[in-house]
Design a protein around this nucleic acid. Structure first.
Lengths: 165, 165
DNA sequence: CTTGAAAGTAGTCAAGC
DNA sequence: GCTTGACTACTTTCAAG
C-alpha cells in the first residue's frame, strides 16, 4: 500500500490479472461481483487478486478523472524548461516546488535538449504567463523556457493494457 | 453519460461539489457513506450530487492508475510530430489511428511549431524506434518527428485536476 | 481455486420536510 | 434543495472441499 516497488523485472501476472487490471482501468467503480463474473472467477478469489494487485503497487490508486474546464481551468499548456548546466543539481528541488503548484498536472524529466516538460492547467493566457514568470523565469537556475498551448488533450484508456508484450 | 459538454462557461458548482470532486479524485473507490459524512451530507444527497457530476461530464470517468512497469512497459517517451502543411486536414484521422495503438498513453494537440505530442509507454528503445517508424515516419503526411526519452513522470495530486495513468 | 453461509455495510428508492 | 427509513444488493470473512 505504501511501498513503491521498482519492477525492474515485470511482475508475475497471469491472463486473469491482466484482465482485472484492464477492466479496473476502464471502470474503477465496477462492483466486485460484476468484475468477478466478467473475468470468470468467484467473488472471493477476485477480491483477493484485486487486493494483491493493490498491495503490490501494480494498481497505484483509484481516481476520478475530472474535466478541468468545469472548475474554470479552461486552458492547458506544455512548458519545456532547460536548466543552466551549472545548476543541474537543483533539478530535484525545482521539481518539488513545481509539483506543489496547483497549476501543475504533470511533470516529465527528459533526456535531450530540454530538461523537463510541465503540463499545466490554467484559467487563461494571462494565468500561464504569470505561472511561467513567477515559477520559472524568476529562477536563476532556469536557462530558458518554451510555452506551447494545448488545443486538445486525450488520455488513452488502454495504454499497453490490452496487448501486453 | 455519453455527452461531451464544452464548459464554455464554468459549470455551477458549490463548495460541497468541489469537495466531493477533490475527494473522489484522491480516491475513486471511497464509499458513498464515507464520502457523505466527509462532506457533511446524507448518503442520498451525496449520491445524487455524485451522479449529477457524472452525468454532466464533470466527472469524466473513474479509473485505476496502473504502474506500466508491472506490465513490462519500462520505458516512456515523448514524440513530437509535425504534419506537412498540405496534410493538416488529415490530423483528425492520424490522431484516431494513433489513439488506437496500445503504446499511446496521451495525445496533445498543440499550437506552435509542432502539431502534436505523443506520450508513449514501451518496452525498450527498440520498441519506441519501431513505433515511430511504423506509425509516423511511414506516413507521408508526417513532416518530421522528434523523440525524447522520459526519465521520470509525475502526476500531481492537486485540486482535482490530475491526469490518470 | 471453489462454494456456501453469515454478518456487516453500502446503495437505492420512496415519502416527506 | 435536503433527510429519514426500509429494502435490496454488495462486501467481507470464514470454514470446508
Amino acid at each position: 500500500m505504501s511501498e513503491s516497488p521498482q519492477f525492474t523485472t515485470p511482475a508475475v501476472l497471469d491472463d486473469i490479472d491482466r484482465d482485472i487490471i484492464a477492466r479496473l482501468h476502464e471502470n474503477a467503480r465496477i462492483s466486485n461481483v460484476e468484475l468477478a463474473s466478467a473475468v470468470g472467477l468467484s467473488p472471493s478469489s477476485c477480491l483477493a487478486r484485486v487486493r494483491s494487485l493493490r498491495e503490490r503497487g501494480i494498481i497505484i490508486r483509484y481516481t476520478a478523472e475530472i474535466d478541468p474546464r468545469a472548475l474554470g481551468f479552461s486552458l492547458q499548456a506544455l512548458v519545456s524548461v532547460r536548466i543552466r548546466p551549472g545548476a543541474r543539481h537543483l533539478m530535484g528541488q525545482i521539481s518539488d516546488e513545481l509539483r506543489q503548484q496547483p497549476e501543475v498536472a504533470q511533470l516529465f524529466f527528459l533526456g535531450g535538449a530540454e530538461d523537463f516538460l510541465i503540463h499545466v492547467r490554467v484559467r487563461d493566457a494571462d494565468h500561464v504567463r504569470r505561472f511561467v514568470l513567477d515559477n520559472l523565469s524568476a529562477n536563476p537556475a532556469v536557462a530558458l523556457t518554451e510555452t506551447n498551448l494545448v488545443f486538445e488533450h486525450h488520455t488513452a484508456l488502454s495504454a499497453g493494457l490490452r496487448t501486453p508484450l
